[in-house]
Measured scan of single mutants.
Amino acid sequence: TFELKGKVGKVVKIAEDHYLVEVEGDKWIAYSDEKLSLGDRVMVVDVDGLKLKAKRIP
């Protein structure tokens, strides 16, 4: 999973306390310091076990 750092994905679902992000065809649980919206493009900035930390990108 460490190779996911720096990869770009898309928010495909918003849950109460996390997001579901699709990166290279796989879906991952993600969290972010900022509020994300459905369809936002994100970059993986860190990997915490099986969770990704994501940041919105333009």
Results as ranks from 00 to 15, higher is better:
4 L>H: 03
50 L>E: 08
8 V>D: 10
45 V>W: 03
24 E>T: 05
44 V>S: 01
31 Y>H: 11
7 K>T: 03
28 W>C: 02
54 A>W: 09
21 V>P: 00
50 L>K: 08
38 L>K: 08
53 K>V: 02
17 D>S: 11
32 S>Q: 02
20 L>C: 08
51 K>S: 09
54 A>I: 15
13 K>V: 09
7 K>W: 03
22 E>I: 13
18 H>A: 08
5 K>P: 14
27 K>D: 09
50 L>D: 13
40 D>V: 06
25 G>V: 04
39 G>E: 10
20 L>P: 00
3 E>Q: 04
44 V>E: 00
39 G>M: 11
51 K>Q: 06
52 L>C: 03
13 K>F: 12
26 D>C: 14
16 E>F: 13
11 V>S: 00
52 L>I: 14
34 E>V: 05
42 V>K: 00
2 F>D: 15
19 Y>S: 04
25 G>P: 03
51 K>M: 09
3 E>G: 02
14 I>M: 11
26 D>A: 14
36 L>P: 02
49 G>R: 05
50 L>R: 09
41 R>H: 14
27 K>W: 10
29 I>H: 13
33 D>G: 07
40 D>M: 09
8 V>R: 06
4 L>T: 08
54 A>P: 01
22 E>P: 00
28 W>P: 00
10 K>W: 13
10 K>H: 10
9 G>D: 00
28 W>D: 01
12 V>T: 09
44 V>L: 03
11 V>F: 00
48 D>R: 05
25 G>A: 06
43 M>L: 10
27 K>P: 08
54 A>Y: 02
45 V>F: 03
56 R>M: 06
11 V>L: 04
33 D>Y: 09
21 V>H: 00
58 P>K: 07
22 E>A: 07
46 D>L: 03
40 D>H: 06
50 L>I: 09
11 V>C: 12
9 G>S: 02
32 S>M: 04
23 V>Q: 01
18 H>G: 13
1 T>H: 15
26 D>E: 10
20 L>K: 06
16 E>H: 12
17 D>L: 10
10 K>F: 12
49 G>L: 05
14 I>S: 08
43 M>W: 03
35 K>Y: 09
15 A>D: 12
21 V>Y: 00
31 Y>W: 14
21 V>R: 00
22 E>L: 12
23 V>L: 14
10 K>Y: 11
54 A>L: 15
40 D>Q: 04
37 S>R: 12
29 I>E: 12
